[in-house]
């Protein structure tokens, strides 16, 4: 099939930008390790309260790991446990969450900390909190009638 000259230019331009785009995304992911949250750990959602680390939700300082703090949260209709978290500015934090009932969201509003919390699965994401302030955590997946009241607060303190 013969292509019009301008159409050739247009498609070469499109194809080239596509390749550049995918290269950048791929290098970001597989060279710099910037992956979306993709933990494949599972859990019995009916026994979350008995299983570590969810038997002790909150902020825990850890040593000997690649991160300084673990923030452990349990999502259930229609709240997060705990309702408020404090982490020091500049620390590397691993968020570890799961759900006790239906699918919930976990979004630190205004940042790129954003992942699903699904019953039976543990979601994890590691990031450095480098700006002090109060960050609202919202549930961004419909979970029932109290969905819009489901929130928590992350306080990054100096």
């Amino acid at each position: 099939m013969h292509l019009h000259k301008y159409e050739k230019y247009w498609l070469i331009f499109g194809g080239a930008s596509l390749i550049v785009f995918l290269l950048i995304t791929g290098i970001m992911a597989f060279h710099y390790g910037s992956h979306p949250p993709s933990s494949i750990k599972t859990i019995n959602y009916e026994k979350v309260d008995e299983i570590a680390p969810f038997n002790n939700p909150g902020v825990h300082r850890v040593s000997g790991k690649d991160w300084d703090y673990e923030v452990v949260l349990v999502a259930s209709a229609f709240y997060y446990n705990p309702a408020e978290l404090h982490v020091p500015k500049g620390s590397k934090v691993k968020f570890i969450i799961t759900s006790k009932d239906v699918i919930h969201g976990f979004e630190v509003a205004g940042t790129n900390v954003n992942m699903m919390a699904e019953p039976g699965y543990i979601s994890e994401y590691t990031t450095t909190v480098d700006k002090a302030g109060d960050y609202l955590i919202v549930c961004n997946e419909y979970c029932g009638v109290g969905h819009a009241q489901m929130h928590s607060m992350l306080k990054v303190v100096d």
């Binding site: 498609l11 499109g14 194809g15 930008s17 596509l18 785009f21 995918l22 995304t25 791929g26 992911a29 597989f30 992956h35 979306p36 949250p37 993709s38 933990s39 494949i40 750990k41 599972t42 954003n114 992942m115 699903m116 699904e118 699965y121 543990i122 979601s123 994890e124």
Partner: peptide, 22 residues
């Protein structure tokens, strides 16, 4: 952003998604 699906599997589908550009 789902747990339970590994990152390379997600990336393969991102590549296939972008083909729609053409």
């Amino acid at each position: 952003t789902d747990p339970g699906i590994d990152s390379p599997s997600k990336y393969i589908q991102v590549v296939l998604t972008m083909m729609v550009v053409i």
